[in-house]
Amino acid sequence: MTAVRYRHAGRLAQRKIAGTLFIVDPRHACLHQPHGSGETIWEMVRSGNTIPEMVEALCDDYDVEPARAEKDIRRFLRELRRKKLIEEIPR
């Protein structure tokens, strides 16, 4: 079974300002600023990582249990999907 991968929505404007990521959705002129692990997940979406790959990376970076990491990652991805900032890559 092919793992789900996501990508950033095509219309977003993104820049790092003094090390902090700023994302603007032109449709609603909304500003988003993922922090910490949220920014890490955002970058891994950009890289095309699957959820298992994200879990492995976050466990290494943040010393967290895999089950907890997966739960947090899925919750964050749901939020990003709800805001239409990411979309699933068709398989």
């Binding site: 219309r11 404007a13 300002i17 902090t20 700023f22 032109p26 002129a29």
Partner: peptide, 30 residues
């Protein structure tokens, strides 16, 4: 600077609809 940028963006008037225009705006704020 990140705090200043965040506060500044919330006070910026902008009427563009395209992401390249917003990207340009972010460059200016940066």
């Amino acid at each position: 600077r990140p705090d200043a940028a965040r506060r500044l963006l919330r006070c910026t008037l902008f009427f563009g609809r395209n992401d390249p225009d917003y990207a340009r705006l972010l460059d200016i704020v940066r």
